[in-house]
Design a protein around this nucleic acid. Structure first.
Lengths: 217, 217
DNA sequence: CGATAGGTTGACGGTTCTCAAGGGAGGTGG
DNA sequence: CCACCTCCCTTGAGAACCGTCAACCTATCG
């Protein structure tokens, strides 16, 4: 991707926001016209399955792209909400795709983003105990928040416990009990949505724990 | 995509097989050089997670493409085995990608295939009771085997129960008991790997069942 | 016929869910 | 400044779903 291509890409970008916490970014079924990259804040994507129950698909931090899974159809397959004040860049997808036919590096980047989402969903589908899920979630969040820099171990969760639980396919009560257990084992320091990872090594051990005695699926 | 493009695509195709049941098509970590489309037979994709346990990611029937999730990196992220005698078409991915920069329709098709895999993995990650998982699995398989034609309701499962169970994140015993229950409720007729769906309507009702009283995740 | 792989069935226990009630924390109005 | 409300989170008790362990059965094959 040379300078001219970068300029072409830049022209497609439309800055959006700040959007207030709780704002709808797009909704399931809306015509798919744009990808978006998060510039600030946290975005939650979710869907309602046939029984009418909300299902959280992911949380998106600054630097991450949302709306990719819409590329298949003409409509968004999920909803996206702002969990806190959010700023976005929007790209017209058809224009990006057209540009990608001229710029192999851009096409490759789009493929990379899509297959990263596949890997993400496959990890979510893995069969692991509740404590491993929460531990992995916190470590993943910590790594993504620091974006390459050495992770500080301090997190400010943008989402309520219920969203974490839903995302991890657990009951909110289970998440609460796990936070308590991790704190009692002095893996974390927790006060509301402020979390500090105090023993990363042992938290990683929990995250890799095998299914062991499972009850649920 | 016009005729010349079709011819260009055709040149990239290499017919492979028949491969015997149990044959390895590619293995995790191998350099990623080709996509493959299944022409006959059934392919299982799977991975070993850090605890050394096998995790089945999917089953691929004639007409379906495997290896897509490798597009991200330079290496296959999973293994692919033949469950029964299999015939394939292999495409050099780099050549397909290069061609895709000239043929927007092909690029769009690749995006479509990738985002379909995202949707698949998200469905797998959904939190539903064991009976809903198995019911949905059988209905999905039935639909994919008939490829548009009216589904006959008759299935010949290419995979052992253990693979079905692993794919659905259940214990093999649970799958066995569910087959028995579905048969006792006369939703299915089952004899080994021969399955006939005798009451599609009620099977669909089971497939959409809400989590209800769950125990596991 | 014995061996092996795959499938079934039963008993039991565990992880996690549901149901229910009880504490903050933050905002608004008096 | 205090009362009050509303979320959000926590904690407890009991039950449920499903996994593990173990045994047995069946079919295929040499």
């Amino acid at each position: 991707m040379d300078k001219r291509d970068l300029r072409d890409l830049h022209v497609l970008v439309e800055h959006v926001g700040p959007l207030a916490a709780g704002a709808h970014i797009f909704r399931e079924g809306e015509p798919f016209n744009a990808l978006a990259a998060v510039r600030a804040g946290t975005v939650k994507t979710w869907r309602v399955d046939r029984d009418g129950r909300e299902q959280v698909l992911g949380f998106h931090l600054p630097g991450e792209v949302i709306g990719l899974s819409a590329i298949d159809g003409e409509r968004y397959p999920c909803n996206a909400d702002a969990l806190e004040p959010v700023q976005l860049c929007r790209f017209s997808f058809t224009k990006v795709a057209t540009l990608a036919t001229r710029v192999p590096g851009l096409q490759r980047e789009l493929f990379r983003l899509l297959s990263r989402d596949i890997a993400h969903a496959e990890r979510l589908a893995a069969d692991r105990p509740a404590e491993a899920r929460l531990a992995a979630f916190l470590l993943d969040l910590s790594a993504r928040l620091s974006r390459g820099n050495p992770a500080t171990g301090h997190l400010r969760l943008a989402m309520p416990r219920a969203d974490i639980a839903n995302y991890l396919r657990l009951a909110p009560e289970t998440v609460s009990r796990l936070f308590r257990r991790f704190r009692d084992d002095s893996l974390l320091r927790v006060r509301g949505r402020e979390v500090e990872i105090t023993d990363r090594r042992r938290l990683e051990a929990f995250a890799e724990e095998p299914p062991g005695h499972r009850a649920g699926s």
